[in-house]
């Protein structure tokens, strides 16, 4: 059986679900960021799969994937800067400890 669009879409869904579970269930903020990167990559796989199998000559899906990469890089830089700042002020990157707005 040759690999078709459904194979790539199901793979993207599996990777997205793994990242979703990690982003919701993990306590370490850096690990949450890593899981968000997995989710963004899963979406990129789905977009490139659509671009390959539905519109193989226009490549619009790959353009969207490039923009997602731009946003992901900016998000990683700003997010990790925020995590480092929080660690400096509160000596912790556990998401359960960051409850300043709740106290």
């Amino acid at each position: 059986m040759t690999t078709g669009l459904e194979h790539y879409l199901v793979l993207a869904a599996v990777l997205f679900s793994i990242g979703l579970y990690g982003a919701l269930a993990k306590r370490n903020a850096v690990v949450v960021m890593m899981c968000i990167e997995i989710m963004l990559n899963a979406v990129n796989i789905a977009l490139v799969g659509f671009s390959r199998f539905v519109t193989p000559t226009m490549l619009t899906g790959q353009i969207f994937a490039i923009f997602i990469m731009v946003v992901a890089a900016a998000e990683a830089a700003v997010g990790l800067a925020i995590i480092i700042t929080i660690y400096r002020n509160r000596e912790s990157v556990e998401t359960t400890d960051i409850n300043l707005m709740k106290e």
């Binding site: 979703l20 579970y21 919701l24 269930a25 993990k26 306590r27 370490n28 850096v30 690990v31 960021m33 890593m34 990167e37 990683a76 830089a77 990790l80 995590i83 480092i84 660690y87 990157v93 556990e94 998401t95 359960t96």
Partner: peptide, 25 residues
């Protein structure tokens, strides 16, 4: 960037634990 953040925050010894939403997540 991620490895740099792990080094700077010294979270290697604490480890990556789950919070109380593990089953609902």
């Amino acid at each position: 960037l991620l490895i740099l953040a792990i080094m700077l925050t010294r979270e290697v010894q604490h480890g990556s634990l789950s919070n109380k939403f593990r089953v609902p997540a």
